[in-house]
Every structure is written in structure tokens, then in C-alpha cells.
């Protein structure tokens, strides 16, 4: 009797989840698999061969990896102090800090990227300000080059680094810091020996998130790079939109997906040691 009730309940829950499942399978999983299948159409690996042998694609992938690494690095350096401050802030500081971090999410990435174009342009707010202060004579090129791309991407991705680190720091028992101090540790040594290692799971989660998101970033580098900075995602888009070469776009997507999954696997293996997170 009771097991029949449980069965009925399970069936009902499954029924409720069905629309989402159908949507995901039909409109996401199936097309992705179709696309990936296209790259090996006819059982040949010619498209992968093309991607591997043509210097352009290899160098763009290398550039994308490099930019993703730099963005991740800058985000980490900027985010860690913010997360540390948030984890120790009072109620008001915390509310203000979280608000400031979440505010950008209320605006689309597109709008924010255009806003950066206004700020960073040749006669943009930034250049005018620097000139008014007498720091520069001629305008600095901040737009349509790597600096612009880096600035825009770091801005968009910073919260993805702050939150995991903040969460990890919150899990560190404040008594540990007190204990370290009481045992004779100067503040910075207590930090490097105790707080920092215990927050590493958050650091690796944040790095993986930001790195993977940067690797596939499209809008921001496309607009702020002005065609001078090419990311792998832009090449894929170009193959589809300009050359209608779907199988080759599929092969490049497969490579990007493989790199992304590879990074996740690495982080899962080395960065995600759970004993560090549990008190």
C-alpha cells in the first residue's frame, strides 16, 4: 500500500519535471550532439585535421587560452581581497559589498560592453579624465586591443571569482585564526599557513569557472577587441555565419568542449580536495 503511494508520488514528480527534461533534451542536448556528430560526418577526421594543421586555428586557440589565463589571474588577484573583506565585514559592509557585486547582473552583458566602449574610447571618459589630470598627453589606446578585451572580461567575470572564494572563507572557523594568533603567529603567517590553504577549494572553483567562461566568451571580445583580438568562439561563429562550414565549426566546438572538460577534470582531481573545505 505505502509503496504504491510512493510510486504514484514519484510518477507525479517525474511528470512535473518532464517539461524541463523535454526542453533540455530536445533543444539543448540533441542539437549539441547533432553538431558534434557533424564534425565526424562520413567517418572522416578531415575537419579535425584541418583545425590541427592550419596554423591559424592553433594560434587562435593558444591566444584564447592565454587570454583566459590572464583574465583568470587578474580576477583572482582582484577578487581574493574582496572576498576576504566580505567574509569579515560587518552587516552593513556585507550588504553593500554583495549589492555592488550583484548589481551588474541586473544589466545585460551587451549593455555593459557598450558602456565600456563609451568609457574606454579615444575620446572616452577615461582618456579625458587622464588628460585632465595631466597624467597623459596623447590618448591611450584602451579600446579595440587586448587591454580593452581584458578590462571588459575581468569586469564581467569578477563576481564569478569572488563568490566561490567568499563561500570558502566563510567556512573557515574564525577560532582557527584566533588559535594561530594565540600560538604566536604574526597576522600574515596565520594567513599564509591557515586561512589561505583552507580557502583553496574556493580559489580553484573560482578559477575553473572564470577560465572556462573566458575561454568561450564571445560578445565582449568581439566588441571590445574590434577584430584585432580573436577568440576561438569568434572563429566558430565566423565559420557558421560567413562560410556556412558547419562541419568545421562543429570540429572547432568539439575541441573547445574537450579543452573545457579537461580543465574541469583537472580541477576536480587536484583542486577540489574536499577535506580542505570541511571544518
Amino acid at each position: 500500500m505505502s509503496s504504491r503511494v510512493a510510486d504514484a508520488r514519484e510518477r507525479l514528480l517525474l511528470l512535473l519535471a518532464l517539461p524541463a527534461l523535454v526542453l533540455l533534451l530536445g533543444l539543448f542536448a540533441f542539437p549539441v550532439l547533432r553538431l558534434l556528430a557533424m564534425s565526424v560526418e562520413g567517418g572522416s577526421l578531415e575537419y579535425f585535421e584541418k583545425a590541427a594543421l592550419d596554423g591559424l586555428y592553433v594560434s587562435v586557440l593558444a591566444d584564447s587560452l592565454r587570454i583566459a589565463s590572464v583574465v583568470t589571474g587578474i580576477c583572482l588577484v582582484l577578487a581574493y581581497p574582496v572576498a576576504l573583506w566580505l567574509s569579515r565585514a560587518g552587516r552593513l559592509g556585507l550588504a553593500l559589498g554583495l549589492f555592488a557585486l550583484l548589481l551588474p547582473f541586473w544589466t545585460s552583458v551587451l549593455v555593459r560592453t557598450y558602456a565600456w566602449m563609451v568609457l574606454l574610447g579615444r575620446n572616452g571618459v577615461m582618456n579625458r579624465m587622464l588628460r585632465d589630470w595631466g597624467l597623459i598627453d596623447a590618448p591611450v589606446m584602451l579600446l579595440y586591443n587586448t587591454s580593452g578585451v581584458l578590462i571588459g572580461m575581468v569586469h564581467v567575470l569578477l563576481p564569478y571569482m569572488v563568490f566561490p572564494i567568499y563561500a570558502a572563507l566563510l567556512r573557515v572557523d574564525p577560532d582557527l585564526g584566533r588559535a594561530a594568533e594565540g600560538l604566536g603567529a604574526p597576522a600574515w603567517r596565520a594567513f599564509t599557513r591557515i586561512t589561505l590553504p583552507l580557502s583553496l577549494p574556493g580559489v580553484s572553483a573560482g578559477c575553473a569557472l572564470v577560465f572556462v567562461l573566458s575561454l568561450g566568451f564571445f560578445i565582449t571580445p568581439a566588441l571590445l577587441g574590434g577584430g584585432r583580438v580573436i577568440m576561438i568562439s569568434m572563429l566558430i561563429e565566423q565559420q557558421v555565419r560567413e562560410f556556412l562550414d558547419w562541419p568545421f565549426a562543429a570540429a572547432l566546438s568539439a575541441v573547445l568542449l574537450a579543452v573545457t572538460l579537461g580543465i574541469y577534470a583537472l580541477v576536480g582531481r587536484f583542486g577540489g580536495k574536499s577535506h580542505l573545505a570541511t571544518p
Binding site: 572557523d173 577560532d175 582557527l176 584566533r178 588559535a179 594561530a180 594568533e181 594565540g182 600560538l183 604566536g184 603567529a185 604574526p186 603567517r189 599557513r193 591557515i194 590553504p197 583552507l198 577535506h275 580542505l276 570541511t278 571544518p279
Partner: peptide, 30 residues
């Protein structure tokens, strides 16, 4: 840190990522 006072906390406050020996060595290293 300069009082040279040993303290045992209510929840022990052992450093979870350090071994027993490393925990005990901590005040000497400092």
C-alpha cells in the same frame, strides 16, 4: 601572539589541513 599563553579552545580549533604533528609543531615554527 606575544603573550606566550597556551590555550585549548572549546571546539579545539585544530588546523584541519595540517597533520597532528604539524599542528603541534605550529607554535614552534612561529
Amino acid at each position: 601572539r606575544q603573550r606566550d599563553v597556551g590555550m585549548v579552545f572549546q571546539n579545539y580549533a585544530l588546523f584541519p589541513h595540517l597533520t597532528v604533528a604539524q599542528n603541534v609543531a605550529f607554535p614552534l615554527e612561529m
